[in-house]
Write a protein that binds this DNA or RNA. Structure first.
Lengths: 330, 330
DNA sequence: CTGTTAGCGCCTTCAA
DNA sequence: TTGAAGGCGCTAACAG
């Protein structure tokens, strides 16, 4: 293993000089020595030992990114946005997937703290249970006490910089749009009650219907994935319109209706939430509430990186997009 | 920042003892001292400094994962498989996305080498141009000289352990299956010619048709994404069946046909390759060649981790799956 | 079982 | 501009 010292010796300069030319110090080094060092480094095949550098500097060039599930296009899109920012800043990304287990999220924060990463990004809905949230917050506090920066995409519950999708308002706007199409009898395919994002979306949707003086929708619970949407949709009878709290669940609902010969939108309208990328290829195209996913990930990392004193929460509005899966009632 | 020394002092033991209890040594420590150390560590909020640990041990607990594009379900699925293995082994994952730029791939290997990661996984098609491949190989050699482990998912061109999807055979089998449906006039939506995976798939498909004594297909080139498939499909006229070299391109082709009022499979049959997860929700369901994506990622990491002397190449067969997007000709 | 003591490779004052 | 030297926090002999 070639070390800086080897390079310095080979080039006939001091360790300090070699360090200055190879590892971006602001200090100046004479042209001839600089050339010597660079030549030696390349001849010897020197590669910086980042661990040593991190130890000596007390700061790393890595950020941590924790998402629920990489396969889910929602998280992939957000992660992609964040990674582009990281790349542009010369930062490496350490990624963890929790598969929606809050304790894994806490464990990752602890590990990333041990890695002394520059910043941690937590992407995904918080949970309703205050206990894991409290423990996560403790872990984050410990990290921040020693200079760690944190940002979230989701609910603003951790005292960190947060990019907050406006789930309530988005769902409410969608409800009004669907009501505007003439729908009166709705079903809501809700995610698990212990996740906050689906809760907010349900609340926003139900609240808006109430304000409009429409009957309460049928609320059906299911897991927060395609299968959950599929299962819940089988019970969505006697309604003209179904709102699934995520596109992924809506996709499951579409499959369910398809398998049972229920036509969308002729027999029932369906809408989702998020506007994940893969949606454009569904038939019928799915109505949804569009969230600027990559930008949200990018913005969250920017917030984390540009440290200010107090935590900022930036709300992101969702835009209702009506496509073919919803139709106006006669 | 709390260090091991702080903990040791607080617990009234030596640095070595504290290290032994907190950072998984095989050495034994008496129960009472062990308890003291653990208590002190938790009271003080101690977090291992992984950089220091890595430096002292000369080995890290991180692996590198380099993919072309996270948004692409193909890579997301493979990455997911690899990450599950990493998690199960207590390894963190440092991830990089190249967006199909070979030079970025080389740069990532260099960076991951500097990070002294335990292993590097390179996922994605190699390129036809031997020059970047040679440079990448050089960079990999440098990494391996100092104990780095490497594995690839793709073509076996780098002298590493490799999980090789059998693109030729899979495409050939698909060609035979489609010919068995009565098709004679084919178009192939080929990816860019400089990527090897699409090349092999085209070659396998064309070769099989030739063996069957069928006319040469119309080969249309396009970019290796949805848009490429869309664009190429607009020129696929006068054929009864279209083979897109990836599902993602096939999805683009479906969109193209849909937009132009060409019915699938009534007017034209369409097939893809990979069997990405999102395929199940397309209408019509897409015929394809199934690859066990997550298992491929998982297996590649296993290969990299369990170091043997020589490089192994494991071929993965694709399974032809005929669904609704292809129909038998009368 | 426990403590002492060299490093691991690099950065960064401080002097020259 | 260049060099000398003391850490950064932890591990792993080695000694007791």
């Amino acid at each position: 293993m070639v070390t800086l010292e080897d390079v310095a010796r080979h080039a006939g300069v001091s360790l300090a000089t070699a360090s200055r030319v190879l590892n971006g110090s602001t200090r100046q080094v004479g042209a001839s020595l600089r050339a010597k060092v660079e030549l030696s480094a390349s001849e010897l095949g020197y590669r910086t030992n980042v661990a040593a550098q991190t130890l000596a500097r007390g700061a790393s060039n890595v950020i941590g990114l924790v998402v629920h599930d990489l396969i889910d296009p929602y998280f992939a899109a957000i992660a992609d946005g964040a990674m582009r920012v990281a790349e542009s800043q010369g930062l490496m990304v350490m990624m963890g997937t929790t598969h929606r287990d809050p304790s894994r999220e806490i464990a990752y924060v602890s590990t990333l703290n041990a890695q002394r990463v520059r910043a941690v990004l937590l992407v995904g809905s918080r949970v309703a249970d205050p206990e894991p949230t409290r423990r996560l917050r403790e872990e984050l506090d410990r990290y921040r006490e020693t200079g760690g920066r944190v940002a979230c995409v989701g609910q603003d519950l951790l005292g960190t910089d947060t990019v907050v999708p406006d789930n309530r308002a988005g769902a409410a706007a969608l409800a009004r749009a669907l009501a505007g199409l003439g729908h009166r009898k709705f079903a809501v395919l809700a995610g698990p009650d212990w996740l906050l994002a689906p809760r907010d979306r349900v609340a926003g949707f139900v609240g808006a219907l109430e304000e409009l003086g429409l009957p309460e929708p049928l609320v059906l619970y299911g897991s927060f994935d395609r299968e959950g949407g599929y299962a819940a949709a089988t019970q969505a009878t006697g309604v003209t319109c179904v709102f699934a709290v995520t596109d992924v669940m809506a996709v499951g609902a579409l499959a369910s209706f398809r398998d049972r010969g229920v036509r969308v939108p002729e027999d029932v309208s369906v809408a989702g939430f998020d506007d994940i990328f893969t949606l454009r290829d569904l038939v019928p195209a799915l109505s949804t509430v569009r969230l600027p996913l990559p930008q949200m990930g990018a913005r969250a990392l920017e917030l984390a990186l540009d440290a200010t004193g107090e935590a900022r929460a930036e709300t992101v509005a969702g835009e209702v997009i009506l496509r073919e899966s919803t139709r106006a009632l006669d």
